[in-house]
Simulated scan of single mutants.
Amino acid sequence: MTGRYDADPAILRDLLAPLGEVETLENLGGGLFATAVHATFADGSRSVVKMVAADTGRMSTYEKGILGTEARIFGMLAGSGVPVPRVQLTDFTRTRLAADVVVTEHLPGAVWNDLSLDDDAQHALRRELGAVMASAHRVTAPYFGYPAPESGLSGATWREAFGRMVDAVLADGEHWDVALPGDRVRAAMAAHATRLDEVVSPAVVHADLWAGNVFVDEGALRIVGIIDTERTVWADPLLDLAGAEQFSAAPPDPDILAGDAAAGGVLTGLLATEAGQARLQLCRMYYALLLVTEVTIRAYEGEYAIWCETTARANLDVALDRLGC
């Protein structure tokens, strides 16, 4: 899979030596993009090593420099109330491994997506996820768009940055021969450009807060870890709603909105306006474009590939219809 990298264990042990003597290395499954390895040290401490191959040949434009973004965002969110792991080591030199490497402390808890929880527990966790979003959105960013300079997808305004993001995914689709409704997308961008201008301050938007990226203490029923910040955008906070429910065209989850509001967040207020509703559909349009193109770029196969593309295309049509284009 694109971005994944199989490291020589001896070289990996040498890279981790500043953190201690490595006792075991265990590949962690589940990642569709990067490779993650669980490292246990002789003193009993544990870390997670994340690697993305240096070869960008099968990456979307927005994914260039993506692991550097992860390390940067973990640092930005430290102390914000968002429970992110501490970065212990990075290596972007590509001298020992043909990959970028970020090493973080091991998080407690279990992946939310792996737990069998009743409805009450799910409702409570979604409300807490809304509070996590509110905490992240209070962290200010220096500009709009993707943080990594390698992507070239940033700007002084949200209209400028978002326009580049949309143009990039359309260009990726053309490069990989993925049929996209480019004329309708460009018409939507032109029709709602002034709506984008209403976003005047870039927030830290995780943009991938689905249950697979959230760690939970099942006993206390609370969120104890947030991972995979590499797709973070400095953006309109509404983009987090699209990222949390990537395959949904339904109204935003009321529990997430309630949790955000209770924590002093801005999402409910933004959605109370016509401009906010339009921007939510623009965010969903963009996310659907990413999902459609990545099926080809990442060479997904089997039933998941069919389901992913079919669902994303249907949601793309819904968003464009709601935008009047």
Rank of each mutant, 00 (worst) to 15 (best):
T93C: 05
R94C: 09
R94N: 12
R96K: 14
A98T: 00
A98P: 00
A99K: 05
A99W: 04
V101C: 11
V102P: 09
V103S: 11
T104L: 03
H106F: 15
G109S: 11
A110P: 01
V111P: 05
V111N: 06
W112H: 05
W112P: 01
W112T: 02
N113M: 13
L117S: 07
L117P: 11
D119Q: 14
A121Y: 03
A121E: 12
A121P: 03
Q122V: 12
H123V: 14
A124Q: 12
L125W: 01
L125Y: 02
R127N: 08
E128G: 08
L129F: 05
G130Q: 07
A131Y: 01
A131C: 07
A134N: 07
A136K: 10
A136Q: 10
H137N: 00
R138W: 08
V139H: 04
T140P: 01
T140W: 04
P142C: 01
P142M: 01
Y143H: 13
Y143F: 14
P147W: 05
A148M: 09
A148Y: 08
P149C: 02
P149F: 07
S151R: 05
S151H: 04
G152S: 02
L153G: 08
S154R: 14
A156L: 07
A156P: 00
W158R: 03
W158G: 06
R159S: 12
E160Q: 12
F162M: 06
F162Y: 09
G163S: 03
G163Y: 06
G163E: 03
R164A: 06
R164L: 02
R164E: 00
R164K: 10
M165G: 05
D167Q: 02
A168G: 04
V169E: 14
L170S: 04
L170N: 06
G173C: 05
G173D: 04
E174L: 13
E174H: 14
H175R: 14
H175A: 14
D177K: 03
D177W: 03
V178T: 10
A179V: 15
A179W: 09
P181H: 11
P181S: 13
P181M: 08
G182P: 08
G182T: 14
G182I: 07
D183S: 09
D183T: 11
V185A: 11
R186K: 15
A187K: 15
A190C: 03
A190Q: 13
A191F: 01
H192S: 12
A193I: 09
A193C: 09
T194Q: 15
R195I: 00
R195L: 06
L196K: 01
V199N: 06
P202C: 11
P202Q: 10
V204E: 06
V205K: 00
H206N: 08
H206T: 01
A207C: 08
D208W: 00
D208T: 00
D208Y: 01
L209G: 03
L209W: 05
A211P: 00
